[in-house]
């Protein structure tokens, strides 16, 4: 019996240890693969200098340049995914310190609209702040409307932003008729016609009236150009 016990201790225990270590190596791989497939936003591009130029140099403002360096230093270094809440906090710091810097808002539209989960939707709260600062700007709501429609597939939100863009002064005719186009694509021809008719009644510019008439004719024909 003692010999048997000795074999157990000398041979079986080290063998069991080896088997457990092999199993451990297997589980380590499975565990990390599992966590990587669960986190679908694992690999995203890092913040880099060309993007910073986009924020800083669009307005030729020294403050913007300086603040973009702040953003650069505050970036989540080599992270696997962006922390949207943290990023937006930094963006808000920039817009508080330099209230008329549109760069961060455009940055949010272009580079933070890849994620369409609840975190991704946070950019819309941030972009609402741009509306208060730049009520006459049509470019930003127009682009947000595009992002809402194409990336978030949210037609209502796209319509709301399209309406904001259309109501801004100096919006080009194509932007002015955008809400009608969105309504038409949703199959709501009545609202599209009502919107265009009202717009035509209040417009005196022939350059505006022409595309409105074209769109009204399309609606009456029932054709749906893409």
């Amino acid at each position: 019996m003692p010999a048997k016990k000795d074999i157990f201790k000398k041979v079986l225990l080290p063998c069991a240890l080896l088997i457990l270590l092999v199993l451990h190596a297997f589980l380590v791989d499975v565990g990390w693969k599992g966590s990587e497939t669960k986190n679908q936003y694992k690999v995203v591009p890092k913040l880099n200098l060309p993007w910073m130029k986009f924020i800083s140099l669009d307005q030729d403002r020294f403050a913007s340049l300086l603040l973009s360096l702040y953003l650069l230093s505050a970036r989540p270094v080599d992270c696997y995914e962006w922390d949207y809440k943290g990023m937006l906090n930094y963006m808000r710091v920039i817009t508080r310190l330099d209230p008329y810097n549109k760069g961060p808002f455009f940055f949010a539209v272009y580079f933070m609209s890849y994620r369409t989960d609840s975190d991704g939707r946070l950019i819309f709260n941030y972009l609402e702040e741009a509306q208060d600062k730049f009520p006459d700007d049509w470019k930003l709501p127009w682009q947000v409307s595009y992002v809402a429609k194409i990336k978030f597939k949210d037609n209502d939100l796209a319509y709301q932003y399209a309406l904001k863009a259309a109501n801004a002064p100096y919006a080009p005719p194509i932007v002015k008729i955008l809400p009608a186009i969105l309504k038409r694509n949703l199959g709501d021809r009545e609202s599209a016609v009502a919107y265009l008719t009202t717009l035509r009644d209040h417009s005196k510019d022939p350059k505006e009236i022409e595309p409105i008439d074209e769109e009204l004719q399309r609606l009456s024909r029932g054709s749906l150009p893409k």
């Binding site: 457990l20 270590l21 199993l23 451990h24 589980l27 380590v28 565990g31």
Partner: peptide
């Protein structure tokens, strides 16, 4: 499960 295995190791 992983912790149990490593504890056994």
């Amino acid at each position: 499960g992983y912790a149990a295995l490593y504890l056994a190791v």
